[in-house]
Amino acid sequence: MSVAVTIETIEKRFDSFTALRGVSLDIQPGELVALLGPSGSGKTTLLRLIAGLEQADRGRVLFGEADTQELSLRDRRIGFVFQHYALFKTMNVAENIGFGLRSRPRQERPSESEINKRISDLLELVQLPGLEKRYPSQLSGGQRQRVALARALAIEPRVLLLDEPFGALDAKVRKDLRAWLRDLHGRTGHTTVFVTHDQEEALELADRVAILNDGRIEQVGSADDVYDHPATPFVCEFLGEANKLPVKVVGGQAFFGDRPVLGGITQNQGGPASLYVRPQHLRIVDETPLALPGTVEHLRRNGPLRRAEIAVEGLKRRLDVDLASQVAPAIGERVRLRITHGNLFAAA
């Protein structure tokens, strides 16, 4: 049922805007992949290209061995869930879900009783039993989302594509649906690609995350891969938060100004570089040879975390530091910071 999706060097332009600049991606059968990126990065265009709603200028998309260029939208058999669901307003829930099956050519069309059976099975699957007769306008956002998913699943798609599946929902519903979708994917095993600009969503839900920027894929990998080992400065800054320090690498040590801040660098690189350090990788310490002095300028609470903004001489932006202990420094206090982990990229 599920197929592998192979994307080969896709390029796509809209008038004066280049949406995709040579994107390649291999998706395994049954895999759940997130396309993550800021708006304008080309992620939705890529999703629509896989669906066949856009045509690539160059490159191709394969479902298994088959080039999708030769397949009509009907023969592609994709389940597409639109950002705003695009439920048919003039049809009730049952008619919406049954639309795909009833659109099949007569000889392939299941009987009415089979279609009705399938509709109630799907409503069961998306946990909305008994809502057959409701109209989309009578449903909540979360319910619409699930009806849209049931409608897409009704045609037994080979690939499931979701455009910002939780974008239009409020935070609480979004969290519930996320867990539910993960669970549903585990049970049905469709090859699934979804687009999101929410990194938390992508990292939590997907087997692999593809991070797009300016029409290119910057990195593809598991959540741990991309978060802990970002391949590019963009990925590092886009996923989570990161402080950026201009440093100079000499002999396995990174120097900020003339002060060594990070040692044990095995990467074979020297010269000017940018050091990205996440707030949780900065620790306030008493005394250590590799430390950065600074002044506490601001303290704030961010959910469960306490965070200090620390000004460092020679650096325009203050450093964000997560406070590990309950004892917070006072504002104005001079502290020393040790970098426990950082990502180094040669300066451009």
Binding site: R74, R77, I78, F82, A86, L87, F88, F99, A152, I155
Partner: peptide, 11 residues
């Protein structure tokens, strides 16, 4: 979007 949805459903 509605038309696109219908087309992807095979109509």
């Amino acid at each position: 979007a509605d038309e696109e949805a219908a087309l992807t459903l095979g109509a």
